[in-house]
Design a protein around this nucleic acid. Sequence first.
DNA 1: CCGAACATGTAAGCCGTTACATGATTTA
DNA 2: TAAATCATGTAACGGCTTACATGTTCGG
Lengths: 178, 178
Amino acid sequence: MSLPHALLTALLEHPCSGSELASRFDRSIGYFWQSTHQQIYRELGRLEAAGWIESLAPEGGRGRKRAYRVLPAGRQELKRWVGESNDPKPLRNELMVRLRAEAVVGPTGIARDIERQMALHLAQLALYREIETRDFSRVDPTKADALRHLVLTAGIMTETLWVEFCRQALAVLAAPGD
Amino acid sequence: MSLPHALLTALLEHPCSGSELASRFDRSIGYFWQSTHQQIYRELGRLEAAGWIESLAPEGGRGRKRAYRVLPAGRQELKRWVGESNDPKPLRNELMVRLRAEAVVGPTGIARDIERQMALHLAQLALYREIETRDFSRVDPTKADALRHLVLTAGIMTETLWVEFCRQALAVLAAPGD
DNA sequence: CCGAACATGTAAGCCGTTACATGATTTA
DNA sequence: TAAATCATGTAACGGCTTACATGTTCGG
């Protein structure tokens, strides 16, 4: 359960409202943890109830922007959580299930979809490289910069992997069948 | 939602009972889609209600092994699903969230946990390589063999990636701070 | 001042997990 | 035959998604 701590991190980097969090999540932390605005609003309510963040705007209710800021207890909780040790969650990849199924009930037209997925991964890779050039070209980055760059690097490595995998998959599917 | 189709695939490869499915899932399809026995039993019930599988054993109830077999409608449904085109689901990786948090509230003792995770990934990689040697050394594999090997290859590539990433992360964390 | 876009919120449903329960089978 | 294990099943809960609803701000 990383969402609350992802929100704490984002709010520490820059206090803001729920909608701003939702859009900032599409970049940065969103590379590896996405969320819809409904989830974010609910979680902000919980974080406030737990005394980890506070709302800066009036309790106006619906429609009015409400900015949040992390309280010392929230910062402490985040630090505690970072120090925790959690096993990596096993992978879930639907394409792999489909390839196993293809081995049993194939051939189907799966190759066309793999080409499509390869294009998506290539596009994402191009986006990441663009962000890398724009945001991480400093000659003397701070440690925090280096860590954020590292996370982006993981995105680049992952997309590169799937592009290469799609290539191999297409080669297998195109080989003379039996 | 891949679980029902993963089960159909496994049952087509070899009809069996729920408990056998649960243990077979730890290997093969389980590399990229895991499931607990509770989920499997519930899903088997749904698949049977949908007319996609049938139970071969008596309706005895609790405690008695009940083997299942895929019906033609189930095979057809699986084939339909394989041909569908689904976008890759965005990644979720808690370690990345923690590294972003480390950039904000660090330093913490996260390096030690990354070493631990690297060891886990190395162990998984060794297991995959062992399976590869044991199960995919045929000189003239069928297309189905090649596809199953391909899925295992994705596991190997993924584990290799995370081992390399952990190495980079440790380098960043060990660098003189600022 | 009216409509569109924005910001927040409510409700329902499904997947996946955890804890627990019960009947059957094996083994000492 | 008693205990341990196996096989199946029930129940509850939390995270996440989807659809929908309500109020506010902004642009013409």
